[in-house]
């Protein structure tokens, strides 16, 4: 019996099953394809923060797997709102982050949710949403590298710039 299989158009396996026993006699060809390295040009925006009111720069922190604002966060955000009201030309970027525990994609979504919560707070307090951009880095850009609650707590944050 002859079985001819053609996989990826490269590999041909011919199997002869001998008639008298169950022994497999086979032939195969090694297939190997090349790999090309690509370099991503970093298009990360480089905002010049110099002429921004420093008061608007702040970081707020969150509980594990949570995106609601703590009373301490609200205090911080209040002064940021004031700074934004004082200078209506300032635009802000909100970057959400998570600690390293749990899965990366869920943490990306969690970081986004945290940043959206902060954005909602600003909008509710009269800041135009056109002045706000929101993004998440999930757990990919930690501030602290330790595997302890202290470091985790510092990484669960939204940075306001």
């Amino acid at each position: 019996m002859l079985i001819l299989r053609n996989k990826f158009n490269f590999l041909i396996v011919i199997i002869f099953l001998s008639s008298c026993s169950s022994m497999n006699i086979t032939e195969e060809k090694v297939y190997s394809e090349g790999v090309k390295t690509v370099e991503a040009s970093s298009m990360s925006e480089n905002i010049n923060y110099d002429n921004k009111a420093m008061f608007a720069n702040a970081t707020v922190y969150f509980e594990f797997d949570k995106s609601n604002l703590t009373s301490k966060s609200i205090q911080t955000l209040k002064s940021a709102v004031n700074a934004l009201n004082e200078n209506s030309s300032i635009k802000i970027s909100l970057a959400g982050h998570a600690d390293e525990r749990g899965t990366r994609e869920y943490n990306l979504a969690l970081g986004q949710r945290r940043a959206e919560t902060v954005a909602d707070y600003f909008v509710l307090n009269g800041i135009s949403s056109s002045r706000i951009t929101v993004k998440s880095y999930g757990e990919e850009r930690p501030k602290e590298f330790g595997q302890n609650e202290e470091s985790f707590a510092k990484n669960r944050r939204v940075e306001i710039n």
Partner: peptide
Amino acid sequence: SKARATTVFGIPNKNRQL
């Protein structure tokens, strides 16, 4: 008894693959 007899044809410098 012999259970299998196979010939694998490699490609140059790809002995790991083989």
